[in-house]
Design a protein around this nucleic acid. Structure first.
Length: 358
DNA sequence: AACCCGGGGCA
DNA sequence: TGCCCAGGGTT
């Protein structure tokens, strides 16, 4: 075991995190689920989702047998919904092809959707007793600093170098503790901003610290200007007090989730009601515009609440439409802004019932 | 407003 | 192999 691993393990025993929800009963299922949720998402955000998800889907068989809408519902607000679709698909594959148990090798794990090299390494080393390196965001930061690895880890050459280093430091024993420890170090001391070097067990040999350049590693992603797109949402309100949603395409933004029908502008919203839903619009009310940011563009959403003169027939060629009572957002997959808008619309409807005109 | 984050998919 | 895509939270 190299000195890096020795010191890291000693630090982990004293100062690492030992009480995360998925550490309580570190089954492969629990570790897998946590690792998928932790992709692109911080621990504090994940915890409440993890708790809700595991109480609804306590084991892989329950997950494999569940409805996609139910799975997406429990993912709503967490983002990157492809993760949930891949998770569900992988659960079905594990039950069908591996009798519900996880294969204990990196290759087989990586053949499952949503599991790449790092996630496979984490599952194998943390829950299956194997030896494999991981390279998540925390580990990249620790290694890039310790070895002063220049460049942005999104570049292949930089990532390859970091993987080499990750492999070389991974010990032969106590791999689970080492893996958790290096993630904990990155999450608690070797943080992106204001790293706590005085408390760091690696400080003596940290190349970035020696150079006084901790803040410069890992190298930043080259950034570019991102455009703003505008869109309008049709919030159709039926005489029964229901709101209408449409299921989105399985791929792309908010894939497979339910969303208010999307049109170009207010005129398009009226046209949508009259032509697609084939009902007249009694009243309209604009709700406040909201801005939602993606990594590659900003979306400016103009929501228009439209009171329909009668309930529309919902049989449409090639699309899925459904109405739910406005009082409560339905238990299906909803993107964060859609959920927020649903609540705003419900409030606006309630207020209009107490005398205020739409 | 800038920045961060693993993996899938496609040219 | 090298981009592009995707959604939240944090700073």
């Amino acid at each position: 075991m190299d000195d890096f691993a020795t010191r890291l393990l000693a630090w982990y025993d004293l100062h690492g995190r030992h009480d995360l929800p998925w550490q309580r009963d570190a089954t492969p299922y629990h570790v897998w689920l946590s690792e998928i949720m932790l992709q692109q998402t911080q621990v504090a955000t994940v915890i409440p989702y993890y708790e809700r998800f595991t109480s609804r889907f306590p084991d892989i068989q329950t997950l494999a047998a569940a409805e996609a809408d139910d799975v997406l519902h429990h993912w709503s607000g967490l983002g990157y919904y492809a993760r949930a679709r891949n998770l569900h698909k992988a659960a079905k594959m594990l039950v069908a092809d591996f009798s519900g148990t996880f294969p204990a090798d990196v290759e087989a794990l990586q053949s499952l959707p949503g599991i790449g090299r790092s996630t496979a390494g984490a599952i194998l080393s943390t829950a299956l007793g194997g030896r494999a390196a991981i390279l998540d965001g925390n580990v990249k930061r620790v290694l890039a600093r310790f070895h002063a690895v220049e460049g942005w880890p999104g570049k292949n050459a930089v990532a390859s170098r970091l993987w080499e280093l990750a492999e070389s430091h991974t010990p032969d024993c106590r791999v689970a503790d080492y893996t958790q420890g290096i993630m904990d170090l990155g999450a608690t001391l070797c943080t992106r901003s204001k790293p706590d070097c005085p408390r760091c067990p690696m400080a003596d040999d940290c190349a970035a610290l020696a150079l006084g350049r901790q803040g410069e590693f890992p190298g930043r992603k080259p950034r570019k200007v991102i455009p703003t797109r505008t869109t309008s949402f049709v919030i159709a309100h039926t005489p029964k007090g229901e709101l209408l949603l449409e299921r989105r395409q399985p791929s792309g933004i908010w894939g497979g989730l339910w969303c208010f029908p999307e049109v170009d502008d207010d005129a398009g919203a009226i046209r949508y009601c009259e032509e697609t839903l084939a009902v007249d619009v009694a009243r309209t009310m604009a709700l406040p515009t909201l801005r939602h940011s993606f990594s590659h563009y900003h979306l400016e959403i103009s929501p228009l609440l439209l009171t329909l003169s009668k309930t529309p027939a919902l049989i449409r060629e090639g699309q899925e439409l459904r109405c739910w009572p406005a009082e409560k957002a339905p238990a299906v997959g909803l993107a964060a802004p859609v959920k927020r808008l649903w609540e705003q619309a419900a409030e606006a409807i309630q207020n209009s019932g107490t005398g205020e005109d739409l």
